[in-house]
Design a protein around this nucleic acid. Structure first.
Lengths: 341, 341
DNA sequence: GTCGGTTTATAAACCGTTTTAGTAACCAAT
DNA sequence: ATTGGTTACTAAAACGGTTTATAAACCGAC
């Protein structure tokens, strides 16, 4: 096994102290008054033997790990995995590595993960937080760690965050159904007090209020058994057979809903108009194509990572926390086309 | 800012040497003959002040980072993100963290990433390798790092690997089309010499050979502009209008293909039967539902991570490398239903 | 009572960096 | 010839653990 090259080897080879080498490698050559000749000598040699500083040693000495963690509900969900992909790209260019984890929206799991990451001395936390971890997050902030929230916030937490205007786009989505002639519009959503969900519900209600109709709301348990959820949705649609459109507040629910609708042999949109929160790249290929709310993945990722890098660079630490609200886009497709009757 | 608690603080508080504490915390209490009373005293105190060892310090001293990296084509691809999710779960329980990266199947990007990870002293490498990095991988192996390949292998590399029987399932998929009355079956695939792709092609050819028909093969550039790829596929199907079925060798190609078919206003499966390599959770909800080859995600993940942990534990390092080949499943749905004419 | 073995514990070295606190050498000015 | 100020560089401490080598205390046996 090859022995690892260390800075001491270079010092010996070049007969220069390791202090000097460290200065040069960290770009402090000029500042520390290291001669040009020494600098090039060092840099050339380092390149030649392709030396790489030991990361653990650097981390130990500086207290920084150049590592950011990102905790989301489910990293395999297309919304989150696309965000992850976009952030990774930007972070990598800045020398940072992102660690991903799925919380399943489970409070205890999230708490455990935060402990795990603290132990690993990650520098920053990007979180789509589950409920009930306000305290843990505030602890992070108290300990001067960089925290950025996205997708949702928690009350009582002062942290930079990036959100989508859930209320506005939900309102527009339901309004769109109404304008296309749908009247008895149901909402299928999760049991959840989380702000992104309550805002979506508020948007739905506001639009339904405008036509003075009643709400048809079905709540589904979060990570329950999918098969029974399909059953539940199916029963709900079947019992409320005056419903002529459904607004699904997550794509996960829409997936189950589409199965329920298929089981009931209902036609989309003749029997039931459909709008889904969160687009999927296959929705535009369905027959009929599915109308969906597309969150601006690229923008969200950029804002989040920019805020994070700013915090990590030390700027903005003492500044007032920013809350960025981005608009989403309603991708109108065939599943919500104007009613013909 | 709270100062971090270190092992020295505990030593001072308890008036016990840090050596003893380290032994106890690493479970070597018995082996090193530390009395029960000291052990409980240490463990209780550690729990009380919720001490956590500094990860960088441990990494520096032991040379281990308890970190595994995983490099795949695109971490946002549902196949890879599902695998990632499954592996993360298992690794976490063993105290390992997985770092994910997307290579975009780009040789240079993969080389850069490997360098990046070496600098971070990751303990193990889980790779779905792009072409042309044989040398880099062999270097890893020479340096005694744990390497497991999956999804594909590279010739000239001696590493544990987990594959799906691409040939067999592709053969079965095309055979299935034939049995359902399709005769002029096209394959739409990537320009690629990678083994998983050549095996899929071999399966297609073998099945087509059995009915002594000609091949209809369209190759698509890898990460080209998607819109022009759709055009290309469209033209291919249009020109070869005797084709009655298509076998897509990746779901990424199928996505473009479905768009092309939609543009051509062809009916599935009346005008064109469809089989896709790699299932998508929405395929069973399409109208018509899409026949797809489902790779055994759970099994793949389990085997890969098990091999990796074995290597990391030191067992099996000197053993002959294992090559595990798993069967895939053909999910038969409506898009390949028997021809009625 | 001292020798050898066991039990229990620890001091000090070590991992590979960064950073602090200095210093040697040179020059210009007094 | 001494002082003061640069310039160019470095020895040693520090980061927080793990591991090696060693030792004190106690015990029973000769």
């Amino acid at each position: 096994m090859k022995r690892k090259i260390t800075i001491n080897d270079i010092a010996r080879d070049l007969n220069i102290s390791k202090t000097t080498i460290s200065f040069v490698l960290n770009g402090k050559g000029a500042e520390k008054g290291i001669s040009e000749s020494s600098q090039t000598r060092i840099l050339d040699h380092v390149k030649k033997i392709s030396y790489m500083p030991n990361f653990s040693a650097q981390g130990l000495r500086t207290g920084k790990t150049k590592t950011i963690c990102m905790m989301v509900e489910d990293i395999a969900d297309p919304f989150f995995s696309s965000i992850a992909r976009a952030m990774e790209e930007i972070a990598y260019m800045k020398g940072y590595k992102i660690l991903y984890s799925s919380t399943e929206n489970n409070t205890q799991k999230a708490k455990d993960l935060i402990q795990f990451y603290r132990r690993r001395q990650v520098d920053g936390y990007i979180l789509a937080p589950p409920p009930g971890i306000e305290e843990d997050i505030n602890e992070l902030i108290d300990d001067n760690l960089a925290v950025v929230l996205f997708d949702r916030t928690l009350i009582g937490i002062e942290a930079d965050n990036v959100l989508v205007d859930n209320f506005d786009i939900s309102y527009k989505a339901v309004k769109h159904l109404i304008e296309n002639g749908y009247r008895n519009i149901a909402m299928i959503t999760l049991y959840s007090e989380q702000i992104q969900m309550t805002e979506r519900e508020r948007g739905y209600k506001e639009a339904v209020d405008e036509i003075k109709n009643t709400y048809f709301i079905k709540n589904i348990g979060f990570y329950d058994h999918p098969a029974s959820n399909v059953q539940e949705i199916q029963r709900f649609i079947d019992l409320n057979n005056n419903i002529d459109a459904v607004f699904f507040t997550t794509n996960y629910l829409a997936e189950m809903g589409l199965e329920a609708i298929r089981n009931l042999k209902l036609r989309i949109p003749e029997d039931l108009g459909i709008v889904v929160f969160d687009d999927d790249k296959l929705f535009r290929l369905f027959s009929p194509t599915i109308t969906a709310i597309a969150q601006p993945i690229g923008e969200i990722s950029e804002h989040v990572i920019k805020l994070m890098l700013m915090l990590l660079s030390g700027k903005g630490v003492k500044k007032a926390k920013k809350s960025i609200v981005l608009p989403a886009i309603l991708q109108i497709r065939e599943s919500s086309r104007p009613k013909s009757d």
